[in-house]
Design a protein around this nucleic acid. Structure first.
Lengths: 217, 217
DNA sequence: GTCTATAAAGAGATAGAC
DNA sequence: GTCTATCTCTTTATAGAC
């Protein structure tokens, strides 16, 4: 293990990068996202990664010493982006509007970055071996924080009371569904995704917002 | 390809089975469900399948000539079970009660058979290469049929109007989430799954049923 | 930095004894 | 039906020339 430290240091995060190195790494990661999100970590080969990035296999391994390093780099990047919509919920906003915005941002993320969503989903489904620390750390803390905010709204009677954490789960599940199960959605709706996301947004707004709106009757 | 037909015929569905054959096959499939649902098709090895089933590799391959055959057998079995809760929706029932029952059955399936759910989810995420025909066939037809039933309820003013197909997607997504993302749910809620499903059911009932209930005010 | 060639290990599947 | 031994092909990763 110690014998490969020099090589690993060159090809991973510990070293300062030149501009061209960063460009190549970005190129590789974007190509790898295609491959990994479609086939999972084990289903992808370094040959395929290299072909997708338009370079030879040893060349790719010059930038990322191990297939695993490419995959981990993608996952790390994803965790941050993925939690942004939730971070943006503001305690001092109007509750239903804050939730509407959250649903919209999360659905937009599914629309614009389905590959990232699928990559993340597969990792979680397989037990999240590489995300355990993020789950127990930043993701746990963020959800706890925002759950408390939503619970505050409920406790002051501004929206209906449900378990706030499970409400977040429901928003995650429904919005990510359109990225993760895109093949199934397409097979069933027939349409291409043009109108799908518009219909999805309207449906989710009715379910979540009308479900949580305080009733007159 | 033609040269392996005799072998394949013995080890796959085309042949009538003895009792002991069926028992061994069931044993293998149950063990394989553990392995495939945790690692995906590509991530699992025949060695691991055999070890999980408590037999040698050649012995497993005596019953299923190819790794792929084990996997396909699992998937086939899953599609049927998985669509049962939706099939049981009855047009002549009370709409909100029918939907409540559907949510409950689907959530119960996530609770009792999380491995099957994860196996199916990974297959869909990866583009459903082996489920394309089921998606375009029986699943498509069933969802269309039940969407029409739900739309009928909406058109006659018995529940609020949303896109019925996307309502089904939302129920799928939220209920399966507890099986597919179990690791994440556990990391965030802290609790073990005892109370999780009870809280989930209450939350989903509020969201879906209150969201769809026709309002007095 | 990039390539060709190749080492080394892994994994699906088979041969053939029992 | 089940096993040990093994074949063969794939795949990760490295060596070393340019």
């Amino acid at each position: 293990m110690a014998t490969s430290d020099n090589k690993d240091a060159r090809a991973t995060k510990t070293r300062r990068r030149t501009r061209i190195q960063r460009e190549k790494e970005t190129l590789i990661l974007d190509a790898a996202l295609d491959v990994f999100s479609a086939q999972g970590f084990a289903g992808a080969t370094v040959d395929e990664l290299a072909a997708a990035a338009g370079m030879s296999k040893p060349n790719l391994l010059y930038y990322f010493a191990h297939k695993e390093d490419v995959y981990s780099a993608l996952l790390d990047r994803q965790v941050d982006d993925w939690t942004v919509p939730l971070q943006e919920i503001r305690e001092d906003g109007e509750p239903l509007e804050e939730l509407r915005g959250y649903i919209r941002r999360k659905l937009e993320l599914s629309r614009m970055r389905p590959r990232e969503s699928r990559l993340y989903a597969m990792e979680i489904i397989q037990g999240a071996p590489r995300l355990k620390s993020a789950l127990d750390g930043q993701i746990y803390a963020l959800v706890r924080e925002k759950s408390a905010v939503i619970k505050g709204w409920m406790d002051s009677g501004r929206i209906a009371s449900v378990d706030a954490t499970h409400l977040i789960f429901a928003i995650w599940a429904t919005t990510q569904h359109y990225a993760d199960f895109a093949v199934q959605v397409r097979a069933i709706t027939g349409t291409d995704t043009e109108s799908t996301f518009a219909t999805a947004l309207k449906t989710l707004e009715v379910l979540f917002l009308d479900g949580l709106r305080i009733r007159d009757g």
